[in-house]
Design a protein around this nucleic acid. Structure first.
Lengths: 102, 102
DNA sequence: AACGATTATGCGCGTCCGCGTATATTTACG
DNA sequence: CGTAAATATACGCGGACGCGCATAATCGTT
């Protein structure tokens, strides 16, 4: 029984963190995720642009899901928003589906 | 008590999935993650390239962490490997640190 | 409705992608 | 050790980025 001694707080934290996550499989979804987190932090595109040394117009294209956006731009934006990327096998279980189990 | 009725199998699956995840904050880490999953699936760069309609050389640059790689290439590679991206707030807790809790 | 703030779009420029094609270089294995 | 497979690198091309600069279009408040 691996979880017998597990702190319920830890598991709760993991589950809560999952609810904050954004899954992305397309450039559009990546852009939408960036936008969501940026707004959550009350930053304008210009604000984020300054943090990452890019133009407001560049942030705009990134959030629009421009497929030819460069990886550098994406990673700089993530850093500017204090975010990170996770690469993982595709799951059918969405956050909503998991909630339904409880 | 939110987790009173939770299927332990589900929680175990979530924890196990986390161990398979790759965290990336730089183009290099993204490339390394792609490479790790590609090898795990016993595919060559050429194999992956064919799946995503890209050249072997393009896959090579992606895995090398070329910062100017286009987002389209990354997402196509993820799809070809049946992977997905997660955008989330940066965590200090690495997979190893979490293991230490158990 | 009107205003400022925010975001989307445009132009010309320099740079570099990803392409096809081809070839070094390295790795893996008998 | 030698050979095939796998990966890294090169060249020229067409195209599109991201840049500065500037302006339209949209949003949010009062």
């Amino acid at each position: 029984m691996i979880f017998a001694n597990a702190h319920i707080d830890v598991i709760y934290a993991v589950a809560y963190r999952d609810l904050m996550d954004t899954i992305a499989r397309t450039p559009q979804q990546v852009g939408a995720g960036i936008r969501r987190f940026r707004r959550q932090k009350k930053l304008t595109q210009r604000d984020l642009g300054e943090k990452m040394h890019a133009r407001q117009a560049t942030v705009s294209k990134l959030e629009a899901g421009e497929p030819a956006t460069q990886l550098r731009i994406l990673m700089d934006a993530l850093a500017g928003l204090d975010l990170e990327l996770v690469i993982r096998p595709r799951t059918k279980l969405t956050a909503e589906a998991i909630e339904d189990l409880f």
